[in-house]
Design a protein around this nucleic acid. Structure first.
Lengths: 200, 200
DNA sequence: GAGACTGATGTCAGTGACTGACGTAACACT
DNA sequence: AGTGTTACGTCAGTCACTGACATCAGTCTC
């Protein structure tokens, strides 16, 4: 598997220009915006990035995945935030704390996030991919709650509800009507859910 | 578009055997079970059903859709149940009432539903399709709540939470560990969610 | 009852997503 | 200098999916 040598290199090296993934992701987003997702071929994306179609598939499993490269990091961050949340917090509170804690990531790149979301909103295939990413995120959050001692089905329900809260808040935040920060919108949606379920 | 003639016919007629969709759905499920989803071609499904590949695509938009033919009827039923629920019921209660009311549809075909779910569980592509069906279901339920006078974002949150409750309950019911009826499992999950969100 | 119409199917050719196998060349390591 | 690795290119192939056109049993119109 890995060589016994311990020395590793920080700088990317090689005969090829750096930043292939960045170029591919940028080219894909631009083409998906201008021609639409279905009308752009993988060959076109690769060409715009100065690569071949085959190389595209060495970086991304399929034509959709190029838009979801950041999902893994987001999930890792949220899982860590849940794990590091105050032990005294209830499950739902730990989840919402993690969500608001990660909100900055979106707020720092609102323009890019907005463009990406417009492309996704225009294509059912991309929506499917986004939904399964969110489902896996919910499963990972449920697992993180489990590590905190939350039993099932409470862990899964809290995680799914948390993701639903995030979805609703995110849509409002991106939608534009809501001028508040994403973090505030999340806590607002969470309290809405609390009212809904606890109300008699 | 439509002829001015008012006479319509109940019996399917024509030179072709009836039940093409039933044959296609049955053939698809069987092949997806035995060879796996990815390893079966649409041509094989069509051949087993006594048809051609092109005809398959006249009945279903794509290779996955053949497993989700019943989703539309389920959605219609749930929307109707929400609309017909007691006006005094709170949003979440109307949703759970509809879900338990539709549970019988699954309980009557537990074997078929279980086989189908095993196939879906084995394939990410099929999971994506299921997730978007559930998302559209949630949107339809939110719309139905809107007709009852429930404002946003409460309607969407209640619908999303309701679908999450159903997912958790369905998984437990199918998973086998839970010997209770699906309807009971749903109400149980709903009360779990209530405890989670209202708990101090 | 002849002719026009309809609806479900077959046939065929084509595009594009995705994969496996193999080759290449800069760079690193020994 | 030799060896291995890594990131890429090239090529051939499968299969999902689509558009265009043909067929023909049954129906409708007159």
């Amino acid at each position: 598997m890995m060589s016994t040598t311990a020395i590793r290199y920080d700088r990317v090296m090689g005969r090829w220009p750096d930043g292939a993934t960045e170029r591919l992701e940028r080219a894909a987003l631009e083409l998906y915006q201008s021609r639409g997702f279905e009308s752009t071929t993988v060959a076109e994306i690769a060409e715009r990035a100065g690569l071949t179609e085959r190389t595209f598939y060495r970086h991304y499993a399929d034509k959709r995945e190029v838009l979801f490269a950041g999902a893994a990091q987001l999930q890792d961050l949220l899982v860590r935030l849940v794990a590091e949340a105050e032990p005294s917090l209830a499950p739902i509170e730990a989840i919402t704390a993690a969500l608001t804690g990660a909100a900055a990531i979106f707020e720092e790149r609102r323009s890019l996030v907005s463009q990406r979301q417009k492309v996704i909103a225009a294509n059912p295939e991309l929506q499917e991919r986004e939904l399964i990413k969110l489902a896996k995120l919910a499963a990972a959050l449920a697992e993180a709650l489990g590590q905190r001692g939350v039993p099932e089905p409470a862990a899964t329900l809290a995680a799914e509800a948390g993701v639903a809260v995030f979805r609703v808040a995110f849509d409002r935040w991106i939608g534009g009507g809501d001028q508040r920060s994403l973090a505030v919108t999340i806590t607002d949606s969470a309290s809405h859910l609390r009212e809904l379920t606890s109300a008699r």
